[in-house]
Computed example of a mutant assay.
Amino acid sequence: MPHASSPDHSGQAITMQKVQPYGEDSLVLTTPATDQDGRLADRHSAYHDNLSPPLIWTPVKGAAVYAIIVEDPDAPRERPFVHWLIWNIPGEATSLPEGLANEASLGLIGGAVQGTNDNGTVGYFGPRPPVGHGVHHYHFQIFALVERLPFDEKTPLADLVNALKGDALASDDLIVTYEAAGA
């Protein structure tokens, strides 16, 4: 049985470890949805309201679009659990509001596309670590890309990662934590 403060990790790398941006600019992703210790507010977990958190990032010169992938490498399975895939966020954007609709196409966000998460639904699926499994670390990974991606919501993560490998100007990895109540 895993120790409560240190869950077993999945065996595979998260996206950030597979994509090497080629640009010179830095990219910084933040959220006001965490406390001082980096714990995500309950309303963003699947145990509660399951709202996507608001995100804010620094602009990257030359970015046509941004992509965000949220993964949990502490999931008790072979590969990280994918909580959110969203891409084609317009290059002029520097934030996403809280509570995006779980729809494939987001016209209000410049036609951004949300993919299917590992829960089998489109859009954001908040943290839901097993009770007693300890603190999980959620990697909110953002990538600045040189061109729009031609994918729909059914695109597998592997295809998205392959596209990011050739198009990423810059990236950042915001790590937030969450632990199931009663753990």
Score class of each variant (00 low, 15 high):
Gly110Ala: 07
Gly110Phe: 01
Gly110Ser: 08
Ala112Trp: 11
Ala112Ser: 09
Ala112Tyr: 08
Ala112Ile: 12
Gln114Pro: 03
Gln114Ser: 03
Gln114Asp: 05
Gln114Thr: 06
Gln114Lys: 08
Gly115Thr: 07
Gly115Lys: 02
Asn117Gln: 11
Asn117Asp: 02
Asp118His: 10
Asp118Lys: 04
Asp118Tyr: 01
Asp118Val: 10
Asp118Asn: 13
Asp118Gly: 12
Asn119Asp: 12
Asn119Val: 11
Gly120Glu: 12
Gly120Leu: 12
Val122Lys: 02
Val122Met: 05
Val122Trp: 01
Val122Pro: 02
Gly123Leu: 08
Gly123Ser: 07
Phe125Gln: 04
Phe125Asn: 06
Gly126Glu: 13
Pro127Asp: 06
Pro127Asn: 06
Pro127Phe: 08
Pro127Ala: 15
Arg128Asn: 13
Arg128Lys: 12
Arg128Ser: 12
Pro129Gly: 02
Pro129Met: 09
Pro129Arg: 10
Pro130Thr: 11
Pro130Tyr: 13
Gly132Glu: 02
His133Gln: 14
Gly134Thr: 09
Val135Ile: 15
Val135Lys: 00
His136Asp: 01
His136Thr: 08
His136Val: 08
His136Arg: 05
His136Pro: 03
His137Gly: 05
His137Ala: 15
His137Val: 06
Tyr138Ala: 07
His139Glu: 02
Phe140Glu: 02
Gln141Asn: 07
Gln141Phe: 03
Gln141Tyr: 03
Ile142Glu: 00
Ile142Thr: 05
Ile142Asn: 01
Ala144Tyr: 07
Ala144Lys: 02
Ala144Val: 09
Leu145Lys: 00
Leu145Trp: 04
Leu145Pro: 05
Leu145Ile: 11
Val146Pro: 01
Val146Ser: 14
Val146Phe: 00
Val146Ile: 12
Glu147Cys: 10
Arg148Glu: 15
Arg148Lys: 15
Arg148Thr: 14
Leu149Ile: 07
Leu149Pro: 02
Leu149Ala: 11
Leu149Lys: 07
Pro150Val: 10
Pro150Cys: 09
Pro150Phe: 06
Phe151Ala: 09
Phe151Arg: 03
Phe151His: 11
Phe151Ile: 11
Asp152Met: 03
Asp152Ser: 14
Asp152Asn: 15
Asp152Tyr: 00
Asp152Trp: 00
Glu153Asn: 07
Glu153Asp: 13
Glu153Leu: 01
Glu153Tyr: 05
Glu153Pro: 00
Lys154Leu: 11
Lys154Val: 04
Lys154Tyr: 02
Lys154Pro: 00
Lys154Asp: 12
Lys154Ala: 14
Pro156Leu: 03
Pro156Asn: 11
Leu157Thr: 01
Ala158Met: 04
Ala158Asp: 14
Asp159His: 11
Asp159Trp: 10
Asp159Ala: 14
Asp159Ile: 07
Asp159Thr: 14
Leu160Thr: 10
Leu160Ala: 05
Leu160Glu: 11
Leu160Asn: 06
Val161Trp: 07
Val161Met: 05
Asn162Asp: 15
Asn162Trp: 06
Ala163Gln: 08
